[in-house]
């Protein structure tokens, strides 16, 4: 099932706020997470390993809380809060790209300065990513092997510097091209990401979660 970026961002933000402030996690708090993951079961293999990797850091934090803070209950609370939120965001956004997020924030009517900056940043990430790939390949061709020495750090610093210089030139060209087309600090996109039937399902699930958590039904 597909979600629109705006609905995904809104629901993920609200659910994160519900869970992050909980002092006790009950099975009822996982209803929304379970529902979203069930709706997104087709892309579970794509984000499952990412969640496992992300859990390494949280397991380290939980282990220190358990071993040195001597509080197993709090360690478990951190682990559950983190995993519920991460599972929901990973499941909701697994098929979306950076441009979808721009449209999502635009639909949510966030300030123009933010959405325009986000749009430009997304475009430049692509430019910088391509330039970085080119320069890394040229280093590889010259048999560069990164080591723990000054030469490596100097090379990487120059690579970063060159990346900035080249990207700035291309970024300026892009800005000038946009200015020529009448850009004055505001964008008026023609394409929007539509709302899907699944958005209604996920919104209903969120309302149900809200009632379960704060209405005392659980």
């Amino acid at each position: 099932m597909k979600f629109s970026p705006a609905a995904g961002i809104f629901c993920a933000a609200v659910y994160s706020c519900i869970i992050a402030f909980r002092q006790q996690i009950t099975p009822a708090d996982a209803v929304f997470a379970a529902g979203v993951m069930l709706l997104r079961v087709n892309c579970l293999p794509r984000y499952f390993f990412r969640i496992l990797k992300l859990n390494l850091m949280i397991l380290f934090i939980c282990a220190t809380v358990y071993l040195f803070g001597d509080d197993a209950q709090h360690a478990l609370l951190i682990f559950l809060r983190y995993n519920l939120i991460v599972c929901v965001t990973a499941a909701l956004f697994c098929e979306m790209n950076a441009t979808d997020f721009y449209y999502g924030f635009y639909t949510l009517k966030l300030p123009h300065k933010f959405t325009v900056l986000l749009f430009f940043a997304i475009k430049y990430i692509e430019i910088i990513g391509n330039e970085y790939e080119k320069m890394r390949n040229s280093l590889k061709i010259r048999n560069f092997k990164p080591r723990t020495d000054t030469f490596t750090y100097k090379t990487l610093a120059y690579l970063l510097g060159m990346l900035l210089v080249r990207s700035m030139n291309r970024a300026q060209a892009l800005t000038q091209a946009m200015k020529m087309r009448g850009f004055s600090g505001r964008l008026y996109p023609f394409n929007f990401r539509p709302f899907f039937p699944a958005d209604v399902v996920v919104a209903a699930l969120l309302v149900f979660q809200f009632v379960l958590t704060f209405g005392g039904l659980a």
């Binding site: 940043a121 430049y124 990207s167 700035m168 970024a171 300026q172 800005t175």
Partner: peptide, 12 residues
């Protein structure tokens, strides 16, 4: 704007 967006993407 362009410079801020560029630094934002470099940070990313």
């Amino acid at each position: 704007l362009a410079k801020t967006a560029l630094m934002s993407s470099l940070f990313f």
